[in-house]
Design a protein around this nucleic acid. Structure first.
Length: 424
RNA sequence: GGAGAGAUGGCUGAGUGGUCGAAAGCGAUCGCCUGCUAAGCGAUUGUACGCCCCUAAAAGGUGUACCGCGGGUUCAAAUCCCGCUCUCUCCGCCA
């Protein structure tokens, strides 16, 4: 959510910024509602003031056993007016709030212009592409031939976009989760958390999934619970409605969670393989930072994600998303894309974003400055570290051998009992 | 699933219709005292929104709201009534 005072005074700047994101939002309605709200507030508060004074006077009169009936009758009328105005106010505020919840964040000045993913800017390359003396296969073929990925039975058990892992694929998924968590905890200074995988409406609203993206979520029938699409949701909401002390910041948290996404609107896209699933595992890093530090923190967060691929010796590129490709809540995002030789493309394996105070304002996550005692919104950040299923894909495709076997990256072997290779 | 108890400021905890944004204590901040520390003394100590002031922000002034959440009664609600959520205790069941 944007700062309503800032928006009120800088409508044209906000409009222009959002146009660069491909968003045309009509702020006339906002300005009208905002003015209406303040008008009603002025009237209703004046009446309340009058009533408060009169009530004190009535109390005094009654104590002195004097007649207060005239004043009481007058205040009866005033209370009726207040009630009416309160109803108007409530309705205007509801409209205003609903409007504000649908306005995307404003991008940082360093975000490149552009309308779609072709305009994203490559900022870094890591590792080297593997060289094959044969035609590299796609991971679904490798996985099925090794009998470690079973797409058919996954579909039987649940449906399309669900996969059954067997044997060493299941072990590799588990090993990767441990490898990533331990890297971030032991070397990057994060604290591990394990959260609920279902959350309430307030949490989904706090991070920006609701109200606009309800169709992307799985909701529990008959209950106000949603399956999380990313651990960002429960982890960021840990400090919802709290005021932190300045000395607590920055806070670095890392969480493993399964992620559930309806993938509405992506019918026919990535239908084969592990790339786009209704359920996948992810290790997620979340930071709470002071505003002046958040862009440095974003660089470090992105480097932490890249480090996973450095250790696994998988080639990747890091792109800075252009204005038109940014997510709803983000002010700036780097995507880390792993090289997938079987598909001959780079695929997003991590997305690292600074939300500035957009989520903090929605979720009311604040901190108190040590000297002045002033309360400010924190900045929230998060990034995948990494998407686990896609990391399995990257390993299968990058480490495949001519004989159909797959070598296990050296960094992962300690987590798989020293195993060096998965053979047919 | 059954029975009961509770939710008040950073914390503990008082308050059952008006003078209560809320006693007291603790903690914290500032000052005094002190050779240092401790003790002692004094002051301050929530958040949000609006208006005034101001070039603007901050500060300041002023008003309103907030005692789990939502509604009701009343001139007036932390206090009375209704609904909900959450926490705790006991019984039963369960990974």
């Amino acid at each position: 959510m944007l700062d309503i005072k800032y928006l009120r005074q800088n409508v044209d700047i906000v409009k222009k910024k959002l146009r660069q994101r491909g968003q045309a939002i009509d702020f006339d309605r906002f300005l009208k509602l905002d003015q209406e709200r303040r008008d009603i507030l002025i009237s209703v508060e004046a009446l309340r003031n009058e009533r408060n004074d009169a009530s004190k006077e009535i109390g005094r009169l009654k104590k002195e056993k004097k007649d207060a009936s005239e004043l009481i009758a007058q205040m009866g009328a005033v209370s009726d007016k207040i009630k009416k105005l309160d109803e108007d106010l409530k309705s205007v505020e509801e409209n205003l709030n609903n409007f504000m919840l649908l306005v995307p964040n404003i991008q940082h000045e360093s975000v490149p212009a552009g309308s779609g993913e072709n305009d994203n800017v490559v900022v870094r390359l890591g590792g080297a592409k593997p060289v094959f003396n044969f035609e590299p296969k796609e991971h679904w073929e490798i996985g099925e031939r090794l009998n470690i990925l079973d797409f058919t039975r996954g579909a039987k058990i649940a449906g399309a976009r669900f996969t059954l892992y067997k044997g060493l694929a299941a072990a590799m998924e588990r090993a990767l989760i441990n490898f990533m968590l331990e890297l971030h905890v032991r070397e990057h200074g994060y604290t591990e958390v394990l959260t609920p995988f279902m959350v309430n409406r307030e949490s989904m609203t706090g991070t920006g999934q609701l109200p606009k993206f309800a169709e992307d979520l799985f909701k529990i029938e008959g209950m106000e619970y949603y399956l999380i699409p990313t651990a960002e949701v429960p982890v960021t909401n840990i400090y919802r409605d709290e005021i932190l002390e300045e000395e607590q910041l920055p806070i670095y948290l890392v969480a493993y969670s399964p992620c559930f996404r309806s993938e509405a609107g992506s019918y026919g896209k990535d239908t084969r393989g592990l790339i786009r699933q209704h359920q996948f595992n992810k290790v997620e890093m979340v930071k709470f930072a002071k505003p002046e530090d958040s862009y440095d923190e974003l660089e470090r967060l992105t480097a932490n994600a890249e480090e996973v691929l450095n250790r696994l010796e998988i080639h990747y590129r890091t792109v800075c998303l252009c204005a038109g490709d940014l997510g709803f809540s983000s002010a700036k995002t780097y995507d880390v894309e792993a090289w997938m030789p079987g598909q001959n493309v780079y695929r997003e394996i991590s997305s690292c974003s600074n939300f500035e105070d957009f989520q903090a304002r929605r979720a009311s996550i604040r901190f108190r400055r040590e000297g002045s005692g002033k309360v400010e919104f924190v900045h929230t950040l998060n990034g995948s570290g990494l998407a686990v299923g896609r990391t399995v894909v990257a390993i299968l495709e990058n480490y495949q051998q001519a004989d159909g076997s797959v070598v296990i990256p050296a960094a992962l072997r300690p987590y798989m009992g020293g195993l060096e290779k998965i053979s047919p």
